[in-house]
């Protein structure tokens, strides 16, 4: 076999030092794909709690008829609810964007892939900025 084999986007470097054995710490861990994968799991669990909480507060415990500007304004007096919404916004946007990225990675090929992914990041980034701005800058009367 050749010293370096590269095919299908996966590389093999036969010059790597061989130092690990069973039960030891193995490197490398980390890396963008691992981080993204782990983030999806953790944010998914957190979002399940946050989104269900949001759903119950907004649609079960309170009728949609009582939810108006004053309702939101009263909520936003408390920093807790701003933090709640901000956390949900950021986790949901990044979770959703990363999910879309993996889908696009699967089904589109360059150059369309890059264009679509970058377009998604721009739109997602704008929504993030807008949402963050609203939550942070909202002044309860």
């Amino acid at each position: 076999m050749e010293a370096k084999l590269r095919r299908g986007g996966v590389s093999m470097d036969r010059q790597e030092p061989l130092t690990t054995s069973y039960g030891s710490r193995v490197k490398p861990s980390g890396g963008i794909e691992l981080t993204a994968w782990l983030f999806m799991r953790i944010s998914g669990i957190v979002l399940l709690v946050l989104a269900l909480g949001h759903l119950f507060i907004m649609h079960v415990f309170n009728s949609v008829h009582v939810i108006d500007y004053d309702f939101v304004a009263r909520r936003y007096v408390k920093i807790f609810w701003r933090g709640y919404d901000l956390t949900m916004l950021w986790l949901a946007m990044i979770h959703g964007l990363n999910g879309m990225r993996t889908l696009v990675d699967d089904y589109l090929h360059p150059p369309a892939r890059g264009i679509v992914v970058k377009g998604m990041y721009v739109v997602g980034g704008l929504f993030l900025i807008l949402g963050t701005w609203v939550i942070m800058a909202f002044r309860s009367p």
Binding site: S11, L18, P28, S29
Partner: peptide
Amino acid sequence: AGKEKRLKIMNEK
């Protein structure tokens, strides 16, 4: 003893 090498490939995109 080749875990690192294989895990490195497994960890790629």
